[in-house]
């Protein structure tokens, strides 16, 4: 029975990783850059919740998503757009710089001490031998909804199909009349909004926030995106959920628990050795 609880916890944690990983993978797929400030958007979302929590919990969640969405657009316009066409290394360093900027701003505004952000006391669902927290269930449901909506959006909406086209072949897409800059901005907006949602779900489970709150989930989600095949949306989902389940299974065994993070990254190494493009990554032939 404990195993089922562990599995559900793993699915829920994996869902959070997957939501964050989607942001990494979409931005990579479309703008061909690694947005290392993505993890810190989660942190900004968390603090936004904290600020508006006194007014109303639902408003706090909505504001968090809206604020992060705008933040994603601003970051893209201010920091990354001027570097379009610059070397990938310059963009990468800029992303790390933005990450530090966000952390430092949070440090100045909110201070270093951890703060509790209790959105709601949800309690536990008792099913006889197993008991599962409602926050876990909500996270799971939210993940499923987000994944479904996003898949449908990408597949059937005009903008979604334009995104796929840009990621397939940017030049061809431009020739077909797609506004590349707008697509990239929309990608950042969607990714950041997802990060805010992931932040809210994670605050339901762990109600504390610090300026470095997004760093670890960010790196784990990046790992998940790479495991699943960076650039691939289903890949991010698979990678995130795989990583979440592995993490919870490792933590369930006291002897292995101290090495959880090492094991997670070891899986990344193994997968990259066996399948360098990730589980669902597409093999691309170099065109000569």
């Amino acid at each position: 029975m404990d195993f089922i609880v562990t599995l559900v916890n793993g699915l829920s944690l994996g869902g959070i990783y997957a939501m964050i990983a989607l942001g990494y993978t979409m931005v990579y797929g479309i703008a061909k850059m690694l947005n290392f400030a993505h993890g810190d958007v989660i942190m900004v979302g968390g603090y936004t919740v904290l600020v508006f929590l006194a007014v109303n919990p639902v408003l706090a969640i909505v504001m968090s998503v809206i604020f992060c969405l705008l933040l994603g657009i601003v970051i893209e316009k201010v920091a990354y757009k001027p570097l379009r066409g610059a070397s990938p290394l310059a963009v990468l360093i800029t992303a790390i710089g933005v990450s530090y900027l966000l952390q430092s701003l949070a440090l100045i505004i909110f201070g270093a001490a951890p703060e509790f952000v209790i959105i709601a006391n949800l309690g536990t669902l008792d099913l006889g031998p197993i008991s599962i927290k409602y926050s876990t269930i909500i996270t799971l449901v939210a993940t499923v909804i987000v994944m479904t909506v996003l898949s449908l959006f990408v597949k059937y909406s005009k903008i979604g199909r334009a995104m796929v086209a840009v990621s397939e072949d940017r030049d061809a897409a431009r020739l077909m009349g797609i506004n590349i800059n707008m697509i990239i901005t929309i990608t950042f907006a969607i990714g950041s909004a997802l990060a805010a949602l992931a932040g809210v779900c994670s605050l339901l489970n762990v109600p504390t926030i610090t300026p470095t709150y997004g760093a670890m989930p960010g790196i784990k989600a990046f790992t998940a995106a790479v495991i699943g095949g960076i650039g691939s949306i289903p890949g991010a989902m698979v990678g995130g959920i795989l990583l979440g389940i592995v993490e919870c299974l490792c933590k369930a065994v006291p002897e292995i628990a101290p090495y959880t993070i090492a094991i997670e990254f070891a899986i990344l190494i193994v997968i990259l050795l066996v399948k360098p493009t990730g589980i669902l990554g597409k093999k691309r032939r170099e065109k000569v």
Partner: peptide, 19 residues
């Protein structure tokens, strides 16, 4: 002693609670 370990950066303790 039943032990549950975590490391720097961990913040989701639902599994530790379970143990």
């Amino acid at each position: 002693v039943t032990k549950a370990a975590f490391v720097e950066g961990d913040s989701d303790f639902s599994q530790h609670v379970q143990n």
